Structures are given as structure tokens and as C-alpha cells.
Amino acid sequence: MPWKHHMRATACALAGLLLAASTVADARERRPRLENRGGVPARDLDPSEKGLVTGVGIESQDIQAMTNQMARDLIASGFLGRFSTPPRVLIDEQEFRNEGSQIINRRMITQRLLVELNRAAQGKITFVGQRYAGMVARQRDLKREGVTDTGTTGLTQGQAGVDFFLGGAIMTLDSRDPRTGVVQRLNQIAFELVDAETGELAWTGMYEFQRAAAEDVIYR
């Protein structure tokens, strides 16, 4: 009965196709779907200008403005004119305290200030990176044990000491109107260049601004 055998084979083939299609459909259903919901698309923003999400705290444009101003003020103060040899300065967030109500990465401020000062000083300041003291110590040991050569600058008695370090603090004064919900904040950022031998203040600078908003944003 060839005709019956042909029909049976055809039916089996159709059943196999249906099973395969069902398996593919089930697999697709199990895959996570990406939904193209409406909203604000990602865009590039100038960090020196106010962004789309703003509040009453320190933001990107403030970090740029204050570090630029502090670098200009320090260079213009005449501080560097006192030295025939470039002084060694340490800028580190450990001595830059956050005493305000906003959560902020302090290193964003100190690192940018270091870069701006290094650019403006044009070799008149030597900056010390004590955060790398552990790596420097290991390299010194490798040189003295003969594992590596002495490099091109030779050996020193110890790691570079610091003549001055930059300290300071972020401070805020907050107020809120319970009737309108308006939040107001005075932001005050102070910088102090401290003599690492005597504790004397060789230079001070301050950046401050005040903002108000109907509702504050969440800073992280």
C-alpha cells in the first residue's frame, strides 16, 4: 500500500515540523524582551554647563569652575615667587573633608585641582603622589636587591618628602520652607595650603555659591 505509507510519512513530517516550531516559539517566549519605552534618550552633555538633572548641591560645572578659579588664585598669589627650587606639594582627598550634607566624591575635586595647578604652574611646583608609596617602596627594593637596574634617575636616600599639602573642607548650610517645599543651600568650599614642617598656612582660597529649588535631587 504505497499510498498509505506516503500519507503516514507526510503526517509524521508535519508533526515534526509543528513540534520544532512550537519549541522555537517556547524558546522565544522565555527570552527577555527589550521594550523601547518612550523617554529622554541618552545624550552628550558639556560638564562645564548645567545638565538636565540639577539641584542645589555641587555639580559638574561647579567642580570645573572652582578648580579653575583656585588654580588661578594660587598662581596669582605670588606664593611661587618665594622659592628658587620648585616646592613639593601633596594634593590628596584625605585632607579634604566633606562636612556638608551632600554625598560627593572628594577626589573629583582634588584630582582636577591637581591637574589644573600642574598645567598652570608650568614646572614651578613638584607634585608628590604619596598614594603610590607602596608601589614606590617595592620598586626601590627591586633596584637595591639587583632584580632591576637603577633606572635613569639613580637612587635616593628615601621617598620624596612634602613641603606643603593642600587641605580644606566642603561645608553647607541648608534651609527648607515647609509651606512651599523650596530647598535652599549655601555651599562653601575652602582650600588651605599648609606648610608640612611648621603647620603655617601659606595660602587660602574659597569658592561659594547658593541655590534654591522647589525640590532637591538625590546626589550619589
Rank of each mutant, 00 (worst) to 15 (best):
V53R: 12
L114Y: 07
I103H: 05
R119N: 10
V53E: 15
R82Y: 05
R106K: 12
P47R: 08
E59D: 12
G129I: 02
E93C: 09
A27K: 03
V53A: 12
G78P: 09
G123Q: 07
M108D: 15
D46N: 11
V40P: 01
I125Y: 04
Q69F: 07
A27T: 04
Q111N: 14
V128E: 04
G81K: 04
R82W: 02
D92V: 13
G55K: 07
Q64S: 03
R119C: 00
L80I: 02
S48Q: 04
F127A: 04
I109E: 04
D73L: 05
V56T: 15
R31M: 13
P86W: 00
L114W: 07
D44T: 10
G100Q: 08
D92I: 13
N105E: 15
D26C: 08
T126H: 10
N98K: 13
G55N: 06
R112A: 06
V53I: 15
R112P: 02
R33T: 09
F127H: 00
R43P: 01
M66N: 03
L52K: 10
R88T: 15
E99W: 14
E29T: 15
L90D: 08
L34F: 12
V89C: 02
D62Q: 04
E49M: 13
R31Q: 12
I58F: 03
S84A: 11
K124F: 07
I103W: 05
I75P: 00
R106C: 14
A65D: 13
N68M: 05
S84N: 11
I58R: 00
L117M: 14
A120G: 06
R37V: 12
T110A: 09
T85G: 02
V128T: 02
L80C: 05
I58L: 11
E49T: 11
S77R: 01
I125D: 05
N68G: 03
V89H: 00
N68C: 02
V115K: 04
V56W: 06
M70K: 02
E116T: 11
R97E: 09
N68I: 06
A65S: 09
R28F: 09
A120W: 12
L34D: 10
R97P: 08
S60M: 13
R106W: 01
G129K: 10
R31S: 06
R82Q: 08
M66Y: 01
P87W: 12
L117P: 01
R31W: 04
L114I: 05
S101T: 15
L80M: 05
Q122H: 11
P47E: 08
T67W: 02
V56L: 05
A27P: 00
P86E: 02
R119V: 08
D44Y: 13
I75M: 08
E49C: 11
A71C: 03
L114E: 04
D46F: 03
G39I: 03
Q102G: 09
A71M: 03
E29R: 15
T110H: 08
S60I: 14
I75H: 02
R106P: 12
R97A: 14
E99D: 14
N98I: 13
T85L: 05
I75T: 03
I103K: 11
T54C: 03
L117F: 05
G39L: 06
R31C: 07
V89I: 13
S60E: 15
